[in-house]
Amino acid sequence: MTAPDLGGAPTAISVDSALSCVDIHKSFGGAKAVNGATFSVPKGSITALIGPNGAGKTTVVNILSGSLSSDSGRVMMGDTDITALPSYQRARLGLIRTFQLSRELGGLTVFENLMVAAKVQPGESLMNVYLRPGLVRQAEKESRERAASILEQYGLYDLRDNWARELSGGQKRLLEISRAVMAEPSLLLLDEPMAGVNPALIDRIGGHIHELKAAGVTVLMVEHNLGVVEKICDHVIVLAEGRTLATGLMSELRENTDVVRAYLGGVLDGRVDR
């Protein structure tokens, strides 16, 4: 099934795709979680992935990031087919994700959580640790500076030497996003970054997402709150029962009565069928 075309992409969005998937299928046991999802994420956009519970959003994110392998279908990053790559290799290409439930590295400090994420790490090779300590020190020094400014930007600087496991829920969410930023993403997958956080923090995270866009990062985020989607996203992908129901701008989708009736209505009224 192909997504209905809802008109041309607005000029603000480049037609180049940063990430796309074609005909993704995935079942667990007998249950089909994803059933032919096909869409692309325009380069430089903030794209929302929406749909009711059970639509397969998180499964799609897991397949895009490589945490889960699909039964069939392809995942492309730009022109590169990344279907066969494990998650760590996708991350090295700049595809970084966050998780629905914050996955802080609890036995590390907040600062170390960011340091781990640094992209260039000669000190991860023991050969360098013993034979080229100067190189390791230099890379660490650069990462420290970067980590310090990201921590400051995300309001975590004063917590830098706390164990990550000691943070509050909201702080863990900020840590997760700032750690992803530390990894120098070109494409960021955020799985419900606003779930379970207070309204002040929602605005703050929204602000950070705009900063990322300004810095040239493409963002794909799973989000339930349509108010948030309208506020910060410029592109929307609607997923239903594992298929792409529609793609386009939020305003365009609202005008598509089929989508509203069949789908968005249910989401907006909070009538979730599963």
């Binding site: 991350a91 996955r103 590295l105 959580n113 000190g123 023991l126 640790v129 660490e140």
Partner: peptide
């Protein structure tokens, strides 16, 4: 070393560490 740090990260959460580009 950074090696030890990444190793401890994989101990705490291997999936999240892999998602940061580490070959756990």
């Amino acid at each position: 070393s950074p090696f030890g740090r990444t190793l401890r990260a994989s101990r705490d959460d291997d999936e999240a560490t892999a998602a940061l580009g580490k070959n756990v």
